[in-house]
Amino acid sequence: TELRLDINGREIKVDGADKETLKELLKLAEKNNDEKAIRIIRHLLER
């Protein structure tokens, strides 16, 4: 399955993203107070 998050109005594919990319996405999600995106990205970073 493909995991996509809508961050800042942009749909971004997050599964398969490297750790650096995920960290950047996490910063974006935190800036937007997007709890769902934050939770998902943190979960991916823990893998």
Rank of each mutant, 00 (worst) to 15 (best):
H43N: 10
K19Q: 10
E46R: 05
I7K: 00
D18I: 05
R10K: 14
L22Q: 01
R42Y: 03
I12C: 04
T1N: 15
L45V: 06
I12G: 01
K27F: 07
R4K: 12
A29K: 00
A17K: 11
E20L: 03
D34P: 00
I38C: 03
L5A: 06
R10Q: 14
E11F: 05
D15A: 05
T21M: 13
R42I: 09
I12D: 01
R39E: 13
D6C: 15
L3P: 15
D15H: 05
D6N: 14
K19G: 07
L45Q: 05
E11N: 06
R42C: 05
A29C: 10
E24N: 09
A29V: 13
E35Q: 10
A29G: 03
E11Y: 04
N8C: 12
N32F: 14
E11S: 12
L44K: 02
I7S: 01
A17P: 04
I7G: 01
E24M: 12
I38N: 03
H43L: 10
L3N: 15
E2C: 14
I41P: 00
R39V: 12
I40H: 03
R47I: 12
E24S: 10
R39Y: 07
D15W: 01
L25Y: 11
A29N: 00
A17L: 11
L45T: 04
L28A: 05
L28C: 07
I7M: 05
R10G: 07
K13D: 09
G9E: 03
E30Q: 09
R47S: 13
K31Q: 11
T1D: 15
V14M: 02
E20D: 11
V14N: 01
R10I: 15
L22I: 05
L44C: 05
E20P: 05
N33R: 09
E30A: 10
K23H: 09
D34F: 07
D15C: 06
R10V: 15
E2R: 04
L3C: 14
E24A: 10
L28G: 04
K23F: 06
D18C: 04
L3G: 15
A37F: 02
K23C: 06
I41Q: 00
K13F: 14
R42T: 10
I12R: 02
D6Y: 08
V14H: 01
L25D: 00
K13Q: 11
E20N: 09
G9P: 01
L3T: 15
A37D: 02
E24G: 08
K31L: 12
K19E: 08
R39F: 07
R42N: 11
N8P: 00
R39I: 13
G16E: 14
R42V: 08
L22D: 00
L22M: 07
A29W: 01
L22H: 00
N33K: 10
A37V: 05
A17Y: 08
E2T: 01
I38M: 07
E20I: 07
K27V: 09
N32T: 14
E46Q: 09
A17C: 08
N33F: 09
E30C: 07
E20C: 08
I12M: 06
E24H: 10
N8A: 11
E11L: 10
I12Y: 15
V14R: 01
I40D: 04
L45P: 00
I40Y: 03
L28R: 03
A17T: 13
L5H: 04
R4D: 15
E46T: 07
T1W: 06
D6I: 15
N32C: 13
I12Q: 03
L25V: 10
R10A: 13
R47Y: 13
A37C: 05
E2W: 03
E30D: 11
N32S: 14
L3A: 15
E24Q: 09
E46P: 06
D18F: 04
E11D: 04
L26H: 04
I7W: 04
I7D: 05
L3F: 01
K31Y: 11
K27R: 10
L45I: 10
K27H: 11
N32R: 03
I38P: 00
E2M: 03
E30I: 09
K13H: 10
K31I: 12
E35F: 06
L26R: 02
L28Q: 08
N8Y: 02
R4N: 15
T21F: 13
I40T: 10
L26Y: 05
K13L: 14
E24P: 02
E11K: 06
L25G: 02
K13R: 12
E2N: 09
L5Y: 02
K36P: 11
L44F: 14
L45G: 02
I41R: 00
E35V: 10
I40W: 02
I12E: 04
K31S: 13
N8M: 09
K36M: 10
L28T: 06
H43K: 12
I41N: 00
E35M: 08
I38V: 11
G9M: 01
N8S: 04
E46N: 10
N33A: 08
L45S: 03
K19V: 11
H43S: 12
A37Y: 02
A29T: 03
N8H: 02
L22W: 03
E46A: 08
E24K: 11
I38G: 06
E20Q: 08
I40F: 04
L5F: 06
N32W: 14
N33D: 13
G16S: 14
R4P: 15
K36R: 08
E30G: 05
D15I: 06
E35Y: 06
G9F: 01
A17V: 06
N8K: 01
K27N: 12
R39T: 13
E11W: 07
D34K: 02
K23L: 11
L45Y: 01
N32L: 14
R42D: 06
K36D: 13
L44P: 00
I12T: 04
L22A: 01
L28I: 09
T1S: 12
A29M: 05
I12S: 02
T21E: 08
G16N: 08
L5N: 08
A37G: 03
N32K: 04
A29Q: 01
T1G: 15
G9T: 00
I40C: 11
N8V: 03
E35G: 06
E20R: 10
K31W: 12
R10S: 13
I41A: 01
K27T: 13
L28H: 07
R47V: 13
I41V: 06
G9C: 01
I41W: 00
R4H: 15
K23V: 08
E30Y: 07
R42M: 09
E30S: 09
K23T: 07
G16A: 15
E20G: 09
L28W: 12
N8I: 02
G9D: 03
K31T: 08
D18S: 07
R39D: 11
L44E: 07
L26K: 03
L26C: 04
H43T: 10
L5P: 15
L25N: 01
G9W: 01
K31N: 09
E30N: 06
